[in-house]
Simulated assay, not measured.
Amino acid sequence: MFTPDKKIAQPGNIVEFERNDIMFKGKVIPSQCQRSVIVDLTIMDNLDEIDFEFDRTVVAHENYRIIS
């Protein structure tokens, strides 16, 4: 089971999150969002295999955990 943490990610951090029972990992990019972050998913090796329409997505602070 995925458990998000309470930390707020900064641009450059690598975060992971779950969406539709799939684990995603990406790099936080600069934005003006206050309650979420924009995550660049192109660092994922298997992004092409996952049928996800976009290479960036918005993730609320309470839905991710920082991994580096």
Results as ranks from 00 to 15, higher is better:
2 F>M: 03
35 R>C: 09
34 Q>Y: 10
14 I>Y: 01
13 N>K: 02
39 V>R: 00
56 R>V: 15
64 Y>K: 00
56 R>C: 12
19 R>V: 06
24 F>P: 04
24 F>K: 03
5 D>N: 15
32 Q>N: 13
47 L>I: 03
23 M>L: 08
17 F>W: 06
20 N>K: 14
61 H>S: 14
26 G>N: 04
20 N>Q: 10
46 N>G: 08
21 D>L: 10
65 R>T: 09
13 N>V: 04
66 I>C: 00
51 D>C: 05
44 M>D: 11
17 F>S: 01
12 G>M: 12
52 F>A: 10
20 N>R: 13
38 I>N: 06
47 L>Y: 02
60 A>Y: 11
24 F>W: 05
64 Y>C: 00
55 D>E: 07
63 N>P: 04
16 E>Y: 07
53 E>M: 14
19 R>M: 07
46 N>R: 14
47 L>F: 00
56 R>N: 12
58 V>F: 04
40 D>H: 03
54 F>V: 08
30 P>S: 09
7 K>V: 11
28 V>K: 01
49 E>H: 10
23 M>T: 08
68 S>G: 05
54 F>T: 09
15 V>C: 02
30 P>Y: 05
57 T>W: 01
43 I>V: 14
44 M>S: 13
29 I>W: 08
33 C>P: 02
40 D>S: 11
38 I>D: 08
32 Q>T: 14
44 M>R: 15
28 V>N: 00
35 R>H: 13
6 K>L: 14
20 N>Y: 13
52 F>V: 10
62 E>W: 04
48 D>V: 03
56 R>P: 11
40 D>N: 09
57 T>K: 02
45 D>R: 06
57 T>F: 01
39 V>Q: 01
21 D>P: 08
15 V>R: 00
24 F>D: 01
8 I>A: 03
62 E>D: 15
40 D>K: 06
21 D>T: 12
45 D>N: 05
58 V>C: 04
65 R>M: 11
43 I>E: 02
6 K>G: 08
46 N>F: 15
51 D>N: 12
39 V>E: 02
14 I>V: 12
44 M>N: 08
20 N>L: 12
16 E>P: 03
25 K>D: 01
9 A>W: 09
29 I>G: 08
